[in-house]
């Protein structure tokens, strides 16, 4: 028995699965409601950026969650994106025999290139706060613009074409396990430990942090108990990163 009961709503074409899932949640959709589309005509990334979503080239899905707030405090909702990244990581191993890396906090990489993006959003609904977890996985290289050097697809990584619904099912099953962990005793601690074990970004990774008004480089030193990334700067200061862009770098040849 899965920790979540999934209800799958399949569309041929939608502007955005996250927007549709939000609408469903506002109208009272239950936890586990999952919206999937063959294509998105206005697929979204963070802050209104576009997620290119041509028909059949990617998995475009959004999941409605209603975390039990007695177990996961409102301020801990960012843990949902860590759990989602772990879920996709597990699913790709199970369904495609693919070992992926997780870039802080929630991008899936293969061979240093982005394979999957996750957009987490929370909204207020009459039934309480709902979280929408949007997952976009590049199934083929048509999913992204050809001039994107840092993107890849399941097809490029494995040489096989995978069915979107098969991958969706694997993602939901794997996510349900990670989501259940989050609701149990020491759920956050265990989730962050699992994330750290799955991500090369957790420890000793040279990174560049790009903030709104500042860029600095340093070496990652694990996660804080709330999921913030610890970065030791070249000057030996420890900084906690909760925003901004994290990029892997080499110190001798900084990209």
């Amino acid at each position: 028995m899965s920790f979540i009961n999934f209800i799958i709503l399949t569309h041929d074409s939608l502007p955005s699965t996250n927007t549709e899932a939000m609408e469903q949640a506002r109208r009272g959709a239950k936890e586990g409601t999952t919206v999937i589309a063959r294509e998105q005509t206005a697929g979204r990334g963070r802050l209104g950026r576009v997620w290119r979503s041509p028909p059949g080239a990617g998995l475009y899905m959004s999941l409605v969650l209603r975390p039990r707030i007695a177990y996961i405090a409102r301020a801990d909702f960012p843990m949902l994106v860590f759990a989602a990244a772990l879920g996709v990581h597990d699913a790709l191993r199970a369904a495609c025999a693919l070992s992926t890396d997780i870039k802080y906090p929630n991008d899936l990489l293969y061979d240093g290139r982005k394979l999957c993006g996750i957009l987490g959003e929370t909204i207020d609904t009459p039934q309480g706060t709902a979280a929408i977890i949007g997952i976009g996985i590049n199934l083929t290289n048509e999913a992204f613009a050809p001039d994107l050097p840092h993107a890849t697809s399941l097809e490029a990584a494995t040489g096989k074409r995978f069915d979107a619904k098969l991958i969706m099912r694997a993602v939901l099953d794997a996510f349900a396990v990670r989501y259940e962990v989050l609701h149990k005793v020491n759920g956050i601690q265990n989730t962050l430990a699992a994330w750290s074990a799955a991500s090369s970004f957790a420890n000793d990774k040279p990174v560049r942090i790009t903030l709104d008004n500042e860029i600095f480089v340093g070496t990652t030193r694990g996660l804080e108990s709330d999921g913030a990334l610890r970065v030791e700067t070249l000057e030996g200061h420890l900084r906690l990163v909760r925003a901004g862009d994290v990029t892997a770098v080499r110190f001798d040849d900084e990209e």
Binding site: N138, A151, A243, D245
Partner: peptide, 25 residues
């Protein structure tokens, strides 16, 4: 307008702002 490669962006930092008094929910 093509973030499939990298959807992260530059944000203001909220570093070193540890948990304030929080109320569960």
């Amino acid at each position: 307008a093509a973030t499939n490669a990298d959807s992260t962006n530059n944000q203001s930092t909220s570093e070193r702002r540890d948990r304030f008094e929080r109320h569960g929910g």
